[in-house]
Amino acid sequence: TSVFMSNEALFQFLHSEIIQYVNSAETGESENGRCVSKLENMGFRVGQGLIERFTKDTPRFKDELDVMKFICKDFWTSVFKKQIDNLRTNHQGIYVLQDNKFRLLTQLSAGKQYMEHAPKFLAFTCGLVRGALSNLGVKSIVTAEVSVMPACKFQVMIQKM
């Protein structure tokens, strides 16, 4: 067994423990929204750090699409061990990244069960993507949606500066 694989197990356990913690720490009316944004913020920090180290020796990107392709292929493979399955764009700053078997959902369910918990398991990754893009000079809003687990779509809306 490689450190690579095991480390992934460790990350997954840590990730769900963080969700558990953030969830229990937040009580009150807007708890869900606050919980999600806390997770998103943590992901943002991590995404920033990762991309900084990961692109240290890579050539400059041609354009926004080039950056998105990098996120879908190299970045996703490094973090989740697979590429994004489908990338769509309207060429006006909206990108939809579809992962048919999202790593952080596969342990949870393969159907409609636990659907109400899915957003919590996506928030950190939304932040991860936003943080990575941010350090590549692309400001964005990243959201996610699930129709049937473990497939999900991340929507990236580029904010023009």
């Binding site: 460790l10 990350f11 840590l14 991590v46 750090g49 973090v79």
Partner: peptide, 9 residues
């Protein structure tokens, strides 16, 4: 990167 993901998280 995978171990850095854990460390940074």
């Amino acid at each position: 990167m995978n171990s850095e993901l854990f460390t940074l998280t």
